[in-house]
Amino acid sequence: MKCLTNEQIQRFIDREMPSLQPEQFQHFISCPSCRALYNEQKLLAQSIKKQINSVAKLPERIPEFQIPASITHTAPRVKRFPLWAKMAALLIPACFVWKMTMKPDKLNEKEFKPTAESIRMYEMCNSVDANTAFQENMIITTVTDANGKVVKCGTN
């Protein structure tokens, strides 16, 4: 089996997944050069970590957090319009739009002027219930002579 790569060794050093496969681990145990590389690379990694950390600086103290000026300045600007003003700003245009859209309907209602004839037709249609059986609707039959006198009268 081939020797382990630097990358595989590095993952093994850091105990990071995916770590060594069983056969790789078997090779690692039996191969002196891989074990030497492991030890050497582990020291290298530690040394470089340490060297990079040696250039790092620590703060002398943790300063008090300053709330950004952009937040403290914008806050009063938001409060400049009170709630009633915002409500009015919404309601006035809303009412105006509502009035504009409702007007044509009211004009149409005023123009509705049915004739006497159409009213009579409407009442006649409503007086006969189309849903009741024909027999239940009483029909009165009258026969008159030439002078208008009733000669014969009968129901159904």
Binding site: T5, N6, I9, Q10, R11, E16, Q41, S47, Q51
Partner: peptide, 23 residues
């Protein structure tokens, strides 16, 4: 891991002196 091992390899000769000092 690939980037890390490459970076460490590149740093090895550059920081060699200090590495041996550490050893």
């Amino acid at each position: 891991s690939q980037n890390l091992s490459r970076a460490l390899e590149k740093l090895r000769p550059l920081l060699k002196k200090h590495y041996y000092e550490m050893l």
